[in-house]
Amino acid sequence: MKDLVEFIGKSLADNPEQVRVEANDKGYETVYTLYVAPDDMGRLIGKGGRIAKAIRTVVKASAIKSGVQVHVEIDEAN
């Protein structure tokens, strides 16, 4: 799953080398935080959060099979 989030992030970012994913197991769900370069925030979130929403939809669809709850956050890498 981390693989998938990272692949999408790298495919959409202008600075793929700065893309990093952190997984946090919260028991009932796993939160994946996608860290991208500050310049890439817009490219990953999109107008009205449209891109972020599409990413979440795809990642959640993939999680259905494994029966886990997932959540994707997007944040600036520092």
């Binding site: 959409l12 449209r50 891109i51 929403k53 599409a54 990413i55 939809t57 795809v58 669809a61």
Partner: peptide
């Protein structure tokens, strides 16, 4: 999901 895959 189809729409999201298409968009991405």
């Amino acid at each position: 999901t189809l729409d999201s895959l298409q968009y991405i």
